[in-house]
Design a protein around this nucleic acid. Structure first.
Lengths: 330, 330
DNA sequence: TTGAAAGCGCTAACAC
DNA sequence: GTGTTAGCGCTTTCAA
């Protein structure tokens, strides 16, 4: 059978409490006792049962991650940053995909809670109100990364999308652009709303007319990007496409290629995602360089503070971004 | 405090055993008792503690996933298939990244075992011998997806890379190619060795001279692909690049673009990964269409059989592949 | 059909 | 410094 703390105690001729102390690095153990116990642990190849430990201590060294789709580069980049820091603090992560489906999201959350995870991170995606209720009533540490929610009273890590998009738009307007389209990807409703708002304000600042159509399209993937491109190029006058999804940006690039449309003179393109795809486009695409990995990493670090009851000076972290101007814009 | 099975039992005026029976769908409960208990469960908003359950039943409805890098599209595609099926069977997944580091791999494995996961899946990547020892001695169900190990006595899901590469190479040789390079990505040593072997055999079948250089380069990402491209194009005579990594393929494509090299007349390109990137390249790239999602999904399904002690007729599943010829090859 | 009770393997007082 | 013991919240015999 599996070896338990009892077996170790017996072999080492001490009580299980002493073994437990050794296991948990409790200093109240005589060095030689410690040595003996460690020896037996090694000899018996004993590994503590984390489940029993969890039940007794109410700590599982496991955190839950709720994410729309791990196979999307945008989210998996966030996830990787998170996971690395989790590992550094000896946590493992249970990742659940929601596809932005509110029911799945809620299920995942409740499942994670019942698995007694020490904390939960929401990565990207939209968090619906019911889940927020669950969070509040669950009393479990939660951090939100790369997205936000209305009431903004949950700890979070983000960049200032509003400011970022205003900065980009201003640059574009300065160079003479008039019709700037933002194509959403439904990565996070709140976050994309910030972008829309930023764009609107930029229009207003420049006293340029804003049309609702500027922010109505959605393209989550390559083909959708291509379709939106064809549709708008056929029916509207477009100076610039700002895309949330990098994949959609590639689709647009290919659409332009096929029509012989040249960047940046006839058309300009800006990406907001900053996945590795950004470096794989031709022409090189101007983008808001969101520190995806860092958002995840900082989020996890923040969560560890809550899980360990360490003081937190700023629950809503805003990370810096940069804007990388490349040849897809003037 | 949190509500437990005791609270429900008390409120429903039954014993905790009965509540447990209701919880676990045990038929030996009078319908009205069941109804009453369910009512109380709902009223108290009771959710069983999965940790306590795990300790008592030795089942955690959690599976471990050991993967090189979740932010790599190749692996995350596998992971997504796996996760969807896991969810279907009510399992959640603990994902750990190893970066192909044997120590991390071993740590992850032992951690998962101590967390009493019901099963473990290795996705992509190389599995080192020590871990294999651990697997054997742990007695925990393990399935290997998208990679293999020497002794091949662990359940696995794969495609026949050996055959696939032979098929592609034969086509290329038929069209007159002589110098076919395979550029590895270290996704899985074993798997890439199968590819090398297949390529060698194709050379042999066609009585063409095989050079060691044909399989010596490695490119895991875009820039590496670009570098390998430049290096080989400068020093060797290359007819075809077969790349393991799609990102590397994009790098090569751009390298060719910059040098004004045209496909497929001067150079040909084949990808082996079949991530979404394949559909985002210009020119469209010929590729071995591995069913990544399905490999993960089938692997998880296989694992559920082992976890539920269902009969397994074929522990080593070989999934079909197709070869999609596109304009990057003749 | 139900209840009582013995664990599951560990942690954490508390006592010595 | 070390041992004893009472849980953690559930599942699962075993009896009734």
């Amino acid at each position: 059978m599996t070896v338990t703390i009892y077996d170790v105690a017996r072999e080492a001729k001490v009580s299980m409490a002493t073994v437990s102390r050794v296991l948990n690095g409790n200093p109240n153990v005589k060095p030689e006792t410690r040595k003996k116990v460690k020896e037996v642990i090694k000899r018996l190849n004993y590994r503590p049962n984390a489940i029993a430990r969890g039940l007794a201590s109410k700590k599982t060294t496991t955190v839950g991650v709720i994410i729309p789709d791990i196979s999307n580069l945008y989210y998996s980049s966030l996830a990787r940053g998170l996971d690395d820091i989790a590992e550094m603090y000896n946590y493992q992560t249970i990742i659940t995909n929601t596809d932005n489906n509110p029911e799945k999201e809620r299920d995942s959350f409740l499942n994670l809670v019942s698995k007694q995870v020490d904390g939960i991170v929401f990565l990207g995606g939209t968090i619906n109100d019911e889940t927020i209720e669950d969070i509040k009533s669950s009393n479990i540490p939660v951090v939100i990364c790369g997205t936000s929610e209305k009431d903004a009273n949950l700890p979070s890590v983000n960049i200032d999308y509003f400011k970022a998009i205003k900065e980009v738009a201003s640059h574009l307007f300065d160079q003479g652009a008039k019709d700037v389209y933002f194509v959403k990807a439904l990565y996070s409703e709140q976050l994309e709303r910030h972008i829309e708002d930023g764009l609107k304000e930029a229009y207003s600042d420049y006293s340029l007319p804003f049309k609702e159509e500027y922010t109505e399209e959605v393209a989550t993937h390559y083909h959708a990007g291509r379709e939106v491109f064809d549709k708008l190029m056929d029916s509207q006058n477009v100076d610039v496409f700002i895309t949330m999804s990098d994949e959609a940006a590639v689709g647009m690039l290919h659409g332009a290629l096929d029509r012989g449309i040249s960047f940046p003179n006839r058309l300009q393109l800006v990406s907001c995602s900053n996945t590795r795809l950004v470096h794989m486009m031709r022409p090189p695409v101007t983008s808001i360089a969101i520190p995806l990995y860092d958002i995840g990493a900082v989020g996890m670090r923040l969560l560890t503070k809550y899980m360990k009851d360490e003081p937190v000076d700023e629950p809503n972290v805003i990370l810096p971004y940069t804007i990388e101007y490349r040849s897809s814009t003037k």
